[in-house]
């Protein structure tokens, strides 16, 4: 308190009082006084003007830099999209040509059939079939304003999170789904559902709500899912205001995954057995007591 009081009360430099006392005592005023004063005030003015100019310039450069960065981000993502589309086209062309080449020989035809089967299972190829669509949407903004993030007008509780989607997708797989996609992003064994900030990412691509989980599987898949843990999880989500709908579809088309790439895993140089044969023989072994 003492510090604050002295700060407020002795706001004037002591020097002024002392100089006045010296003058009262008869000391002649400094000869350089006016020059000194002029120089001091020029310095003050220079400082203020420089600071003003500097601030304005810096604001300009900051705004320019931000605009330039924004433009660059937009340019690059447009270029990315272009390259991605081209990649998709090239992939489709390569797949078509590979198919044609393989079909030319008997051996090739066998390989092609196996390739198609593997692509279907792994998610590297598009699939179609019956199944269901699960639609999820974030809770609408709470008009009462409770728990609402003022910046986004969205309540944190009512937002579909990456964990919700992870759990639900796991349940969909567990219910017998053979192929699953979220908002047109095919899930593979290597897919990751994660979040960055408020966005949910599938394979590092951001999704925007509403979320659509499409699954191809057997007829009883939907019943298994809704009656099982998936259904109760959805009921809990509904308590938070997250709306959902599950609809049966006779014919769903799930796209191929954008990239099924393994970087470290290679197929062994000498296959122990043909995978089909080995699975057959395993079944045989199990069935024979």
């Amino acid at each position: 308190m003492l510090l604050l009081t002295s700060l407020v009360e002795d706001s004037l430099d002591d020097g002024y009082a002392r100089a006045a006392a010296r003058r009262a005592a008869g000391e002649p005023p400094s000869r350089y006084g006016p020059v000194l004063l002029l120089a001091g005030l020029v310095a003050v003015g220079l400082l203020l003007a420089t600071a003003a100019v500097q601030t304005r310039e810096r604001a300009d450069t900051v705004a320019e830099a931000r605009d330039a960065l924004t433009a660059e981000i937009e340019d690059r993502s447009a270029a990315n999209d272009r390259v991605e589309r081209q990649l998709d086209r090239e992939r489709a062309r390569a797949a078509r040509e590979r198919r044609q080449q393989l079909r030319a020989t008997d051996e090739g035809a066998t390989v092609e059939r196996r390739l198609t089967r593997l692509e279907t299972v792994t998610g590297a190829g598009a699939v179609s079939g019956p199944g269901f669509v699960l639609r999820l949407d974030d809770a609408p903004a709470d008009p009462s304003g409770a728990d609402v993030d003022p910046r986004t007008d969205q309540s944190d509780e009512g937002r579909v999170s990456d964990r919700d989607l992870q759990t639900l997708v796991n349940e969909v797989w567990a219910s017998g789904a053979e192929a699953v996609a979220i908002n047109g992003q095919r899930l593979t064994a290597l897919s990751a559902i994660r979040s960055a900030g408020e966005a949910v990412l599938v394979d590092f691509r951001p999704l925007s709500p509403p979320y659509e989980v499409t699954a191809v599987g057997p007829d009883d898949m939907r019943a298994t899912f809704v009656d099982g843990f998936g259904g109760s999880y959805l009921a809990v989500l509904r308590d938070y205001g997250i709306d959902y709908a599950v609809t049966d579809e006779d014919e769903l088309l799930l796209p191929a995954s954008a990239g099924v790439t393994v970087r470290y895993a290679v197929s062994p140089r000498r296959l122990p057995q043909d995978p089909d044969e080995s699975s057959d023989s395993e079944q045989n072994r199990e069935s024979t007591p």
Partner: peptide, 16 residues
Amino acid sequence: MIALLGLVLGVVAGLF
């Protein structure tokens, strides 16, 4: 008077 002159001079110099 000198003070005001000095201040104005400084500001003008800074701006220009």
